[in-house]
Design a protein around this nucleic acid. Sequence first.
DNA 1: GCGTGATGTTGAA
DNA 2: TCAACCTCACGCC
Length: 267
Amino acid sequence: MPEGHTLHRLAADLGTRFGGDAVSVGSPQGRFASSAALLDGSVLEGAEAHGKHLFIGFGAGRWIHIHLGLIGTVRFDGDTGGQVRLRITGPGGRADLRGPQLCALVTDAEKARVHARLGPDPLRASDRADGAATAWRRIGRSGRPIAALLMDQQVLAGVGNVYRAEVLFRHGVDPFTPGRELGGERWRELWDDLVGLMAEGVRRNRIDTVRPEHEPAAMGRPPRVDDHGGEVYVYRRAGDTCHICGTPIATRPLDSRNLFWCPTCQP
DNA sequence: GCGTGATGTTGAA
DNA sequence: TCAACCTCACGCC
């Protein structure tokens, strides 16, 4: 589930449901119990995301810092089964956090440290203006493949394995192009596209990357929705044919993550 | 019903 | 380099 759009959507939903309300905070599973007790009954002031990190604010410099990791989930008003690390209950309903990589009570200073080590986030309004330039300072002098740089949260925050594969396809970029050979103009196009794609991801709460002219209906194909819930060009389509040119989609691990691309469309 | 892999990151070995 | 997190959805029986 979790690329940046998921966390920004969660922040918005938490704010809408609980913002301004005194809430119950608990940890049925127990691992967050002592911190939850300190927050129980406090007003949930708001929530924000930076990349894949989520912060829920309770005032007086108290934040719950959450990272879902690979398997963490948040479910609203769901069933009560499973190991619930964090449960927030209020007039707006119930939120249950399961299986997170991280769930900790942190101070303003600790939160600031997290922001400081993350690159610009295409979904953060404060990064919209100069985020492309900030990221390019790292990308433009790196010999690492652009596919690796896109996943480096210190370079760029919020892009995961789906968005990186899809944005590179949409711009016909070979994933193994060294950052410094990409060119600033090309990078700007990638950034601008990520801003749009990820904002759309927040709205739909899923990742759709296929352009209108390539949608199944327009191409005479049956509708197909990927595991993660959206329409994509290459992610997890290894061996299937490219929607555009028919070449089998290639895959290869890069830094122990599966990379997908079309050898013809991304020369 | 069971086994597997995954949209991710951290910290220990 | 690897285990941890211990969920979720899928494929296969």
